[in-house]
Design a protein around this nucleic acid. Structure first.
Lengths: 130, 130
DNA sequence: AGATCATATTCGCTTTGACGAATACAGATG
DNA sequence: CATCTGTATTCGTCAAAGCGAATATGATCT
């Protein structure tokens, strides 16, 4: 039975960190390149990479390479209950103040005519590419 | 807005532990006395009390004193998303192998004509009192 | 009051995980 | 090849949290 294959403890541990929740929020609609996470969360790159690795090991996100760039996206859990919890979490995040501001900043960074140095040339999230 | 009053990180940290999930599962239908948790999870009493305190501080359970005994029950979160996640978690637990076995053991311990010494005289969960 | 029972808390220890800084790796480019 | 750039990992440190054992607290009963 699918209920047995999925470790609830690992799943909730992955959700039990503010930085990881903010990362998931930024991936809500699309896969997103690591450099955008760094820019939007205004933190250092190793921290982002470590949290993404944590989420990846928990089976919650997947990575795709595109040249030098890595894109991360949310993986819909195969377990039905986990899937519903994830869906609820994503809605929850869409109504949270801080994560709303994060998304505004993502849009700003992506669509600005003069993007930050770190970002120039990076592949934009599909839904935000102009 | 209610979304701001509830800390997602604290909420998920509370769910991110196997022992706490097992405790919540035992409280699924009723409030339950501490001594039953100890008996069913076959562990020491301080461990149970510490995890219950953790859940209480996270606002997920509440305690009621009845003489020497303490009963714990699940508190429905005031936050709508938290409430839906909790509901999903409870269903999830009802389909999980280990937690199913826990409930079977709870019933056995409660309804046995010859209950373990630790339990004799303890107030039974309402739904299981014979 | 003293004894007993159920539960809570503290203590000392160990593990986990978060962090910044430094370093390693992988792909692109010259 | 060397170099640069984006990302991943390692290192050392620190705080959080898990644990068993011991102890404290609070209620009941004699």
């Amino acid at each position: 039975m699918a209920s047995q294959a999925f470790d609830m403890e690992i799943f909730f541990k992955a959700l039990a960190d503010r930085t990881r929740l903010r990362l998931l929020n930024l991936m809500r609609e699309d896969e997103v390149c690591v450099c955008f996470f760094v820019e939007v969360l205004k933190t250092n790159q190793p921290k982002i990479s470590r949290h993404l690795a944590y989420l990846r090991k928990a089976g919650i996100v997947a990575a795709r390479r595109e040249g030098k760039w890595m894109h991360y996206r949310i993986v819909t859990p195969s377990h039905p209950h986990a899937e519903r919890v994830m869906k609820e979490v994503m809605t929850w995040l869409s109504e949270d103040r801080e994560t709303q501001r994060d998304r505004e900043r993502l849009i700003k960074v992506c669509c600005s005519p003069q993007p930050p140095l770190q970002i120039q040339g990076a592949p934009r999230p599909a839904s935000l590419s102009t």
